[in-house]
Design a protein around this nucleic acid. Structure first.
Length: 203
DNA sequence: TTGACGATATACT
DNA sequence: GTATATCGTCAAA
């Protein structure tokens, strides 16, 4: 997979909602330690959600804590947390420096290293490999160890441009939240079959 | 949120 | 008719 242009921080929109839309159609690349190509894989982002400052659903809403500290890093850093005591969630820090906002990566269209993702996820159908934030993190072997890393740097996990341009990007309310649940801050690639959520949200 | 399960639908030998 | 895929519901952590 040649021609991988890593996303530079300056390319990322400063506005969290803009960033969420911008990320749809981009690539997330997972590199195994020691340059071991065996465990490397990547996928095209097809679904994201923005969590803004002042947003009751945002983990930074009640201020900075050891757990959510990564949300306050300059945009483009990883914020990884555990949901439901079992599922890992991968976010991209967003917004102006020190503000505390993020973009949740919700679904991926597997691109490279499908075999290794298959191993990590069990032999589920290709469609379910990274459909849903928890599954996405599992497919990429995301753990707390990756919390706080720079996604714009050459490391174990980074963002890159995809060859094929983003198609129509749809917008809807976010999934699985109770507070501030009616704001249209979910972004998805229209027509993708790798989306999570009920069908009526993916119009 | 995910995995399991039953019902349903589409596909193909 | 058997296999594979999609959909809604339900329980668990």
């Amino acid at each position: 997979m040649p021609n991988l242009h890593r996303l530079a921080r300056a390319e990322l929109p400063e506005d969290p909602a803009e960033l969420a839309g911008f990320l749809v159609g981009k690539l997330v690349v997972r590199q195994a330690p020691e340059g071991n190509c065996e465990g490397s894989c990547s996928g095209r982002i097809v679904e994201t959600e923005a969590y803004l400052p002042g947003d009751a659903a945002c983990h930074a809403f009640r201020g900075r804590t050891p757990r959510n500290a990564s949300l306050f890093l300059p945009r483009g850093h990883a914020y990884v947390y555990v949901a439901y005591g079992t599922a890992m969630m991968l976010n991209v820090s967003a917004g102006p420096p020190g503000i505390g906002a993020g973009v949740l990566l919700r679904a991926l269209q597997p691109v490279d290293g499908i075999d290794v993702m298959q191993i990590r996820r069990g032999n589920v159908p290709l469609r379910d490999l990274a459909r849903g934030p928890g599954r996405l993190a599992a497919a990429l072997a995301i753990g707390r160890a990756l919390d706080g890393i720079d996604l714009c740097a050459d490391g174990p996990l980074f963002l890159a441009d995809d060859l094929t341009p983003p198609g129509d990007v749809g917008r809807s309310v976010r999934i699985g939240i109770t507070r501030d649940a009616d704001r249209p801050l979910r972004f998805y690639q229209r027509g993708s079959r790798f989306l999570s959520g009920p069908r009526w949200l993916n119009r």
